[in-house]
């Protein structure tokens, strides 16, 4: 319990990840699924950036004299997550575009209803 409270960033990230994952898996509405997907991605970004953050230290931009290594946070996770955010935005945009196309063809964004319309193909 104490471990959870001291690492509160990680705890929050895992809880958010769970919420996002559940939303993604349990809802049949595609828009809600995409929201869940975004929450999940954001949770991972929080987790990753928290790994690089050191309490009470600055961004690693050197102005004037160079301080000790401990004065700066680790910039690598933030830089990686910038890429991660671009990837997540791209995926979201693509998923939303597909949702619009599906809505055009089937006039609903509910995945279960769409599957019903398609009919079963003797799976399961």
């Amino acid at each position: 319990m104490k471990g959870l409270l001291t690492n509160y960033y990680e705890t929050a990230a895992i809880i958010l990840f769970g919420i996002g994952f559940a939303t993604l898996m349990l809802h049949s509405n595609l828009i809600k699924k995409i929201i869940g997907m975004n929450i999940m991605d954001t949770a991972i970004f929080l987790f990753f950036i928290a790994k690089g953050y050191i309490f009470e230290s600055q961004a690693p931009i050197i102005r004037g004299e160079l301080k000790t290594v401990y004065a700066y946070v680790n910039p690598v996770p933030s830089a990686l997550m910038l890429t991660g955010i671009v990837v997540a935005v791209t995926t979201t945009a693509f998923a939303l575009a597909l949702t619009i196309k599906l809505n055009e063809k089937y006039h609903t964004v509910d995945l279960d209803k769409i599957m019903e319309m398609e009919g079963d193909k003797n799976d399961e």
Binding site: M40, G84, F94, A95, T99, L111
Partner: peptide, 27 residues
């Protein structure tokens, strides 16, 4: 076609879960 878009969105959603898990393990 309708069925290809449906297949693609299923694939996209499942893959997003997969890549989320991969990124988490990298973290």
């Amino acid at each position: 076609k309708g069925e290809t878009i449906l297949a693609a969105i299923k694939y996209l959603i499942m893959s997003t879960v997969g890549s989320g898990l991969v990124l988490m393990s990298i973290a």
